[in-house]
Amino acid sequence: MSDLNVAIVIKLEPDFSEGNVSYNPDGTLNRAETKNTLGPHSAIAAHAAFYSKVMYDAKISIGTMGPPIADSSLQMAQRICDAEELHLYSDRIFAGADTLATAEVLKTGIEKMQGKIDIVFAGHRASDGETGQTGPQTAWKLGFTFLGNVIDYKVDLKERTVIAKRMVSLQGFNDIVEEIEAPLPVFISVDPAYKANFNTVLQRLSLEKYKKEAKIRSDNYKHYLKVFNAQQLGVDLKFVGLLGSPTIVYKVERIPKGKATRQAEILDGSNQEDLRKAVAKMKEALSAMVIK
């Protein structure tokens, strides 16, 4: 038995990098033609969990909700963090879930993992639309303390607490690093700026040892994999999938052209009329709505 049981929730996402992504003529993502990969933020979460393995010899379980092919994301995450247990929650009824309904599945899955989970790690957000709600919503359903934007953490195994550093970035304020202490269990959403610090030779050597183990395990990931459908998971069908989703996507449309295509209009800096025109354009740019 390990002193620390950690879980990671991850997501299989389209690979948006040029050369792998494909778009339909209407601008929507061509999912069939686009390769899938472990979401970059999920990968960061896996790295954060791996820190617990190296430092505290934690047992790691990974869970994901998705189609059967999402097992590849579990393998990729296992390759990063040397997990002992892989969960795939896969059922057609889960399809179309919004964040609330996804959180319900993940919460139920985490409760089925081996050992009592002390820390759950999740990515900051997904790159294909989900904007970082699933993590905190799962946390709340689990009754775990939620810590967001975590850039560093350590665990006090004796006190059963976590001390985490989180990044607070607010419009118009300098960034703040907040150090926060919380009793286990906690749910950590990992900031993209997270970087594990292994400061001694011994830690680094043990890191290498686990990395090697991770490679061996992930080459043989099916051995660690458990697949659950809705029934096996024991979720209430009213709270998952489309039925359990308060929100719907009503429509998708093109954003009216916001960005100028950078074809410079060349104006003469010594001509007052030209400068007037320049300022007018600047004014127009500033008055229009921001599309980020």
Binding site: T131, Q133, Q137, G148, N149, S169, S245, T247
Partner: peptide, 23 residues
């Protein structure tokens, strides 16, 4: 607010209120 406070706060509040959220 969709920032490092509101983004997570909105998520947990809406679970507590049992309703939906767009971010």
């Amino acid at each position: 607010a969709a920032d490092s406070i509101g983004r997570h706060l909105s998520s947990t509040v809406l679970v507590a209120l049992d309703s939906g959220l767009a971010s």
